[in-house]
Computed example of a mutant assay.
Amino acid sequence: MTIKVTLLGTGTPAPSLEKCGSGFLLEDQQKKVLFDCGPGIVGRLLSIGVKPTEITHFVLTHLHFDHVVDFIRLWLQRWDRGRNSIPPLKIYGPVGFKRFVEQLFGRDGAFAPDIHGRIDHPIQQRIHLLRTGTAVQDWPELAVIELSSGDVVELGGWKIFARSVPHYQPYLENLGYRVETDQGIFAYSSDVSVQPDTKATDPTLEGLRELVHQADITVQHLNSVSTEVGLHEPSHSVAGRGGRPAGVQREHKNTDCDAPRTSHLAKRDKGTSDKGCDALLRRRVRVGIGPHDFRAGQAAKLK
């Protein structure tokens, strides 16, 4: 079994006709898990042939708009097109996300008039009857599970580890995620903001180190990082094995892809080398503030 990793968008909060906000899709034959859903991500999903109704799980890192604003579109279109015919979207995120979702889609939420109309209006009931064979519709279930640093979620053979990563605390919690599978390890740091005087031994960095340790593919958003922090282990790059050692020079790069890019995790026999891996696994996929100077994400496999 192969796990496909697609970088849908790696942009910044700045408005752009070319760049999208944050969004990364992990999928196998049973599930499609979307990490973050910033501006433009639903359009990127559609561009690779993935409908909102096909997304089975959504995982949020933090409540900054460039990571979450298109979640509104994703949720509404998934519910509207899949009402009573697909399971509710399983939603995970940091503390505060449940309130966010309920204030949008709950019975007293911002979109309650829209949802009420699509459930109760005779025109919508006729449409739903044609789609599903019944005009009766229930209020959508909001299946939100809030996570804290240290929590583990098991999803059909995957283990998703949540760790707190420094970025705008205490105003909001920011979680990075590590996905361990039989095919390999994917790590997503979320945004990383470290004060200039932060040392490599600072305990706030421990969660980040745990996330990226021996990961096969790592996507890391470097919002503000000091040269002295040394986030990267000498033995592997932020996008896999190889790469620069710890203590790399400070970089502010925007690695936004102008179209979705795909990599793969496929089970590798013990004792084999990485020579069959493509370039992505030996370079870091780094996102930060600055010029558009890197086209992210080439196809790769681990065997």
Rank of each mutant, 00 (worst) to 15 (best):
G242E: 00
K98S: 06
P260D: 04
D274C: 10
Y92K: 04
D197P: 00
I217W: 11
I115F: 05
P113D: 12
G243M: 02
L63W: 00
V152G: 01
A200C: 05
P15Y: 11
D66N: 14
T61D: 06
C257E: 08
R268N: 00
I55Y: 01
P166F: 03
T132G: 12
W75P: 00
G49E: 10
A266F: 06
A246Q: 10
R209S: 11
K98G: 07
A200S: 14
S263F: 12
G21H: 10
S273L: 12
A110W: 14
E206W: 03
E228Q: 15
R99M: 03
K51T: 03
V5K: 08
E210Y: 10
N223M: 13
T12D: 13
F58W: 13
S85L: 13
K51F: 02
G247V: 07
Q195Y: 07
L302K: 13
L281A: 15
F58Q: 01
I217N: 07
P88T: 04
R286Y: 05
S235Y: 11
E102S: 01
A246V: 03
K199C: 02
D36G: 03
P170R: 04
I289Y: 14
T218L: 13
E54I: 02
A296K: 13
T10D: 14
E206L: 10
I48Y: 03
R107F: 02
H62M: 05
F97A: 03
D216R: 13
L172G: 00
G93Y: 04
Q214G: 04
Q124G: 09
N84I: 00
D36T: 12
Q77V: 05
R250I: 08
R118H: 12
D28T: 10
L17C: 08
L130M: 14
A299K: 11
Q298W: 14
T255A: 15
D197M: 08
L89M: 06
Q137C: 05
L147S: 11
V229L: 13
A300D: 10
E54L: 02
P88A: 08
D114G: 04
E141G: 02
S235P: 00
E233R: 14
A112Y: 04
L280A: 14
C277L: 13
S47G: 07
P203E: 11
L147R: 14
H292Y: 10
